[in-house]
Amino acid sequence: MTADKNASPQLTVFIGSLEEKSDEFYRKNKNILPHIARVLLVATFLEDGLRILTQFEMQRRYIAGVWACGLFVSSALIVISVFCQLVPAGLILFRRYVDVACLALIFEVFFQRFIYNIAWDEMIPNEFARIGAVLLLLAEACNDANAVPILYKAADHYVDLQNLTNWLQLAGRVFLAFSVEFGITPLQIIKLIVGFSLAILIIIGYKTKLSATVLACWLTLFNFYKVISGWMHNEIMEILIYGFFLNITVVGGLLNVIALGPGTKSIDSKKKYW
Rank of each mutant, 00 (worst) to 15 (best):
145 A>W: 01
174 V>E: 02
132 G>A: 05
94 F>T: 15
268 D>Y: 07
128 F>R: 01
44 T>G: 07
98 V>I: 09
256 N>W: 03
261 G>W: 07
170 L>S: 12
87 V>Y: 06
34 P>F: 01
46 L>I: 15
121 D>T: 08
169 Q>F: 02
39 V>P: 00
161 L>R: 13
194 V>R: 12
103 L>R: 12
109 V>A: 04
69 C>R: 14
21 K>Q: 13
113 R>A: 07
187 L>P: 04
181 E>L: 14
192 L>F: 15
248 I>T: 13
213 T>K: 12
102 C>I: 14
161 L>P: 02
228 I>M: 10
102 C>W: 05
7 A>F: 04
11 L>D: 05
49 G>V: 03
255 L>W: 04
60 R>P: 01
221 L>Q: 11
128 F>G: 00
264 T>D: 09
208 T>W: 05
118 I>A: 05
112 Q>E: 06
244 F>L: 11
41 L>A: 00
152 Y>P: 02
105 L>W: 03
192 L>N: 13
101 A>C: 05
177 A>L: 06
111 F>S: 07
194 V>S: 10
263 G>H: 11
237 M>I: 14
54 T>P: 00
174 V>D: 00
154 A>E: 04
224 F>T: 12
39 V>C: 08
88 P>M: 03
136 L>R: 09
245 F>R: 08
180 V>G: 11
118 I>C: 02
24 E>R: 15
134 V>S: 02
53 L>Q: 14
58 M>T: 15
181 E>Y: 12
221 L>E: 05
175 F>C: 14
16 G>T: 09
257 V>N: 10
180 V>Y: 08
232 M>F: 08
232 M>E: 13
111 F>E: 05
157 H>R: 15
89 A>M: 01
33 L>S: 01
69 C>S: 15
152 Y>S: 10
101 A>V: 02
196 F>G: 06
270 K>T: 08
86 L>S: 10
163 N>C: 05
191 K>G: 06
26 Y>W: 11
42 V>Y: 00
164 L>E: 03
150 I>F: 12
126 N>Q: 10
151 L>R: 03
193 I>T: 13
174 V>T: 13
56 F>V: 10
269 S>W: 02
167 W>V: 12
17 S>D: 13
166 N>P: 04
248 I>S: 04
160 D>T: 01
227 V>Q: 02
16 G>L: 08
156 D>H: 01
159 V>L: 08
17 S>E: 11
266 S>F: 05
188 Q>T: 10
210 L>K: 13
192 L>E: 13
94 F>I: 13
70 G>K: 11
271 K>H: 02
130 R>I: 04
157 H>E: 05
28 K>W: 06
58 M>S: 15
56 F>I: 10
258 I>Y: 08
100 V>S: 07
25 F>S: 02
240 L>D: 03
9 P>F: 06
156 D>G: 01
235 E>W: 05
100 V>N: 06
140 E>W: 03
234 N>S: 10
64 A>P: 10
154 A>S: 07
133 A>R: 00
242 Y>L: 06
227 V>W: 02
53 L>G: 09
26 Y>E: 10
259 A>E: 08
254 L>Q: 01
273 Y>P: 03
20 E>L: 10
226 K>L: 08
253 G>E: 03
133 A>C: 00
69 C>Q: 14
207 K>H: 08
265 K>E: 12
231 W>G: 01
93 L>Y: 00
22 S>Q: 15
247 N>C: 06
23 D>T: 09
31 N>S: 14
274 W>L: 15
234 N>G: 05
